[in-house]
Amino acid sequence: MNADLSVTNAILLVGQPNVGKSVLFHRLTGAYVNVSNYPGTTVEVTRANARFDHQAVLLDTPGILALPARSDDERATVRALLEEHTRCLVQVGDAKNLRRTLTLTALLTDLGLPLVLALNMHDEAAARGVTVDIPALAKELGIPVLATVATGGSGIAELTGSLPDARAPEAMLRYDSDFETDIAATAAAIARLAPHPHLAARGLAILFLGGDPEVAGWLAERRRPLRRPRSFAPAGWRECRRRSASPPCP
């Protein structure tokens, strides 16, 4: 690991589209980003220094419906996950739709990065009669969970206060045993041949097996200096990486 990689100062805001990542980003950095009440406003990663910690850099990422990435904006988010020296992830989620939010949380816990969950739009959830037992959820997930209203500014101080406590959680679930066998075999290969400085091999294995083009590309590059470069980077992958549509890679 070179010196650069040991400085882990990036905090990534991730989440589904239109949950308020950019509003939160604006709150935490003061940097103006275009913010709208519709999905797809952010299609590139934006970065700015955090107000609360001058050592930290905050990154606003395009919304992801799910991973592996299917479109160019989702790929930008995966690239950020692969390339940034991430200190922790802040998942911004819709408090009105906890089920959907937790579906993504399940995936993020596989990545092995310290994680904090901000349940945003808490006011709207309350107006719709939805109350979330936040301490119970935090205990269940093993990560800090906070209720926020990014537009109004409530819960922001609690959120920044919880960041130092963020720990990498246990993977939220074990998949079907057939998949787990494949995942474990692939993860072992990744850990041996191309370990990532921050991301868990398990998470990379899941994305790779699902055909994520960015992860496949990253792994293929990593393999080159090692002994059997050809075996790991067939031409098919690079081809697949260039196409913006991403059918499962060969």
């Binding site: 799910a66 089920r99 939010t101 949380t105 109350t131 079907d176 499962p248 060969p250």
Partner: peptide, 27 residues
């Protein structure tokens, strides 16, 4: 795994887990 459409199958398992968990903490 690509043939078996792994992402969709994993997503289904995640949704089930999320469903159970959210049901237990939501009122």
């Amino acid at each position: 795994n690509a043939e078996g459409d792994l992402p969709a199958l994993l997503a289904r398992e995640r949704t089930e887990a999320a469903d159970t968990l959210s049901a237990s903490v939501i009122q």
